Amino acid sequence: MTTVVCFGDSITARKEGNPSPALTYKLSQKLPNYNFINAGVSGNTTEQAIERFAADVIAKKPDYVTVLFGSNDSATYRLVDLELFKRNITTFAKVIGPSKTILISPPPVDESLQENRSNESLLQYTTVVREVAEETGSHYIDFFTAMYSREDYKELLVGEKNDGLHFGEAGYDMLSDLIAQKLIEINLNHPKKGLLEKVIGLFFEKEK
């Protein structure tokens, strides 16, 4: 079974009313032949995450790792500057291995509810994540653009806390779809893709 570790902050960790963290719960439903491990810790910046990286990610011997940070790194009260953020994200990608790494840009925020985060700043962190993906050859998901380009993006950001940052079902549906589609895309190019036909069929059947 393919093991995927989802590494991140509260965006990765929150349950939002689900039996377990929303992201990995939804992914497990969409791709039941995969083993999803949640390695999200609320409040983490990349500086804190790098301290637990070996134990929470590498020790799990994953086939793939999603890396989603930036929401806290960009916050004015705990700012991790862009250069250090880039260095940390690059470290994650190189140690995991670019072919196994799926870098995800941070989501936008509802600025009317967020005093310490701005979409202008988050776009800068998104640019860094994209640059690292290009420079290392890692896989990339532009979550920021996927959500921010929607006219109703603020509605997608409504969750239990309703703080303009921690989203609920709609946001996790979007994020889990993007990750599931990326995993399918990667595995379609895998030399053993024939073994994955059942998994892919299950996903698209659920999407109908």
Rank of each mutant, 00 (worst) to 15 (best):
M1E: 09
G201H: 14
I58Y: 03
F167L: 07
T45F: 04
F92M: 02
L31H: 00
A75W: 08
F204L: 08
Q114S: 10
V109R: 02
I89S: 04
N18R: 11
N44V: 09
L23K: 03
V67C: 11
C6R: 01
M147P: 02
S42P: 11
Q114F: 06
Y172N: 01
E197P: 06
P32T: 06
I200Q: 07
R78F: 12
K198I: 13
L183V: 06
A54F: 11
I186P: 01
N189K: 15
P21T: 01
D152N: 14
E151I: 12
T12P: 02
G40E: 09
Y140E: 04
K100V: 06
K192P: 04
A39T: 08
P106A: 03
K26N: 10
K26R: 13
P62C: 04
N189D: 15
P191Y: 06
V132R: 00
N38W: 05
K208A: 14
P98Y: 14
A75M: 10
A180Q: 00
P106G: 05
T46V: 09
N33L: 08
L27H: 02
S10L: 01
L123C: 15
A55C: 07
Y34E: 07
G194C: 10
T127Y: 07
N18W: 08
E197G: 10
L84P: 10
G168N: 03
D177K: 11
G201C: 10
L68N: 07
P106M: 05
D73Y: 03
P107L: 06
Y77V: 13
A22V: 06
I11M: 05
F36G: 00
S112Y: 08
N189F: 12
R78T: 15
N18M: 09
K206I: 08
Q29V: 12
R52P: 09
T24I: 11
